[in-house]
């Protein structure tokens, strides 16, 4: 079982991202869950989304998880959310920030014993450059592919195209570029 917790703001596409990841993974014969905890939260409010991935049918319907990966897709939430909540000794962190890894960790005490498990990538800048607006949900998945080695980049891009197929070609292309850049730029 692989468990992922997303830290996002409502409107940044974490739910879409979690469902997109689930859709890609499901095509490979695995079982997935993608869900969120937002209730009546408004656009801009801090929220969590979640993924579970396993080879067997997933019957755990508990919301809380002990994540293997934590995605922080809003830069400020690394400072204000409890991003290391329920973590394990091998939980990997992928954090959107314009700071260098050293600069970020210096400001977040909870990450200071997790240097090797912390990865940074500027999904905000990448999505501004490629998609044209701050939409960090798809680039974070590129970074995740690099860190987790779950799938080859090309395989992931091909399947992600299918998930995004209802969008205009221009938007699909921009998302592919964003995913590729995040894959290459995550540190």
């Amino acid at each position: 079982m692989v468990e992922i917790r997303w830290h996002s703001r409502a409107g940044q596409g974490a739910v879409t991202g979690a469902k997109g990841l689930g859709s890609v993974v499901a095509t490979t014969g695995k079982q997935v869950q993608a869900y969120a905890l937002y209730g009546s939260a408004k656009r801009g409010a801090a929220m969590n989304a979640y993924n579970r991935i396993d080879d067997e049918p997933i019957t755990n319907q508990e919301t809380k998880m002990y994540p293997d990966y934590v995605f922080v897709i809003d830069p400020a939430l690394a400072f204000s959310d409890d991003i290391t909540k329920n973590d394990k000794s091998d939980t990997q962190y992928i954090i959107t920030t314009h700071l260098s890894k050293e600069e970020l960790i210096a400001q977040i005490p909870a990450l200071q014993d997790k240097v090797e498990r912390t990865h940074v990538v500027d999904c905000m800048q990448i999505s501004l450059d490629t998609i044209g607006r701050a939409m960090p949900n798809t680039p974070i998945l590129g970074a995740f592919m690099k860190v987790s080695k779950m799938y080859d980049l090309d395989f992931f891009l091909e399947n992600m195209k299918k998930v995004l197929s209802k969008f205009p070609q221009k938007i699909i292309d921009a998302n592919m570029e964003a995913i590729t850049r995040a894959y290459n730029e995550v540190k």
Partner: peptide
Amino acid sequence: QDGFTTSHKAQN
């Protein structure tokens, strides 16, 4: 079906 737990949880 359970609100949110099932209604908003995507799965296979």
